[in-house]
Amino acid sequence: MPKINVDNIHANFVRQLESWVDGLPEHAKDAPFVTAAAKGGKELSPSQVLVHVRKLTPLGVQLTEQAAALAMSDTFREALPGAATKPPVKPARRSRKSATKPRRRGPQNRGGTVTV
């Protein structure tokens, strides 16, 4: 399973946010991105989100903690057996003989219900 370096989690998150903000058009960098549903409605632009995370303000710490948890759960899910990294299993091909001749099934195999 891939390992996550906890020491680098903050630096990685800052890098991710920097690349997101850098890739935005100029007007979007300082436009509101999220708001809080409180009187006065505290609004945060992408640049302000980055500042909070960079400076590890209380909100920046909260965001980094959540980003770390999400990264870990994403890595964990990808590492699970049968995750997207594994090629899809092709259904077994039936031989020509068995494809033309109906298979005989016992009474328990006939459909989805069994009566006893």
């Binding site: 991710q16 946010l17 997101w20 890739g23 935005l24 991105f33 999220v34 992408p46 989100v49 909260q62 965001l63 980094t64 959540q66 980003a67 948890a69 999400l70 990264a71 759960s73 994403d74």
Partner: peptide, 19 residues
């Protein structure tokens, strides 16, 4: 988790607020 995996522009930053 869905936003984090989808990873379109702004999804990962917003995923933390959602969390």
């Amino acid at each position: 988790q869905l936003l984090y995996s989808r990873n379109r522009v702004g999804d990962r930053a917003f995923a933390s607020f959602v969390a």
